[in-house]
Design a binder for these strands. Structure first.
Lengths: 135, 135
DNA sequence: GCAGTGTTTAGAATAGTTCTAAACTTCTTG
DNA sequence: CAAGAAGTTTAGAACTATTCTAAACACTGC
């Protein structure tokens, strides 16, 4: 039983987005089932194979809109490789360098102490921790 | 007085790179003076204006080689924006979101506790902390 | 159902980076 | 210090990831 309602049209509407068929199809792929990390290309391949194909431009648009609406979080791990993470809660990442795999880990056990105060006139938006590992 | 010798040909040779005029010119821009963060484009603009212009392809080649040789460290903060950092010691970054500015901060005061053990068969290569701040 | 506005689409455009192959340096050896 | 071998540079083409364009289409409110 998912923590959040599987009524995707309602969830999109709540986020201020019209529940078009394309967005609903993408939301289903993204949020049905466990948390995931996707790239635009990867999601496009998936949705192309589905009953409701969606153009690549729309996949990009939707991912950007979902991120802006707080439904997704963008994680940049390598140049020219942007992942979207359906887990928007506080957590950090393992990045497995050779294969480009990304794994979440919860941040509740992790404490970061001794961070300097941010530059004048700025406030902290987020702290990203990426643990890069190799085989 | 720089901590490391300003004899760039020697430093390049020590890193296993032929000290060509182009690489020496780039090394001078990068390592003479304080630590810096550059993008390929930015460094290309700089070196084009110098006495020893260098093509963009060579700037890319040199940055990649310098990074592979451990002379530079690559920092990925935003999709399609790769910075090279002349500071290769242990430290982390502030990223000022609106203007894309990057600032170092030393890691000696920072402690990260409670990191989970890495996935089986892997070892930690590096832990990156990026503190994203907004105005 | 019918506007009216927002969305989707294919394809072109753009940005950043890497590739190619010919010309040119640098290094080694005699 | 000349000659050859090997590594490097270059302009431009190619490539990858992403965004833009403008015409067709679909969701919403009346």
């Amino acid at each position: 039983m998912p923590a959040t309602s599987p009524d995707f049209p309602a969830r999109l509407r709540a986020a201020g987005l019209r529940p078009t068929r394309q967005r609903v199809a993408l939301a289903r792929l993204l949020f049905e089932g466990g948390p995931r990390h996707v790239t635009a290309e990867g999601l496009h391949v998936e949705v192309k194979a589905s009953r409701m194909p969606v153009s690549l431009a729309t996949v990009y648009n939707a991912l950007n809109q979902f991120r802006d609406a707080g439904l997704l979080r963008e994680v940049v791990v390598a140049p020219g490789r942007s992942y979207f993470d359906t887990n928007t809660g506080h957590h950090h990442h393992f990045f497995i360098e050779p294969d480009g795999e990304l794994h979440d880990f919860p941040s509740d056990k992790v404490t970061i102490a001794g961070l300097p105060t941010p530059p004048k006139g700025t406030r902290v938006a987020r702290v990203d921790v990426i643990v890069r590992v190799r085989r």
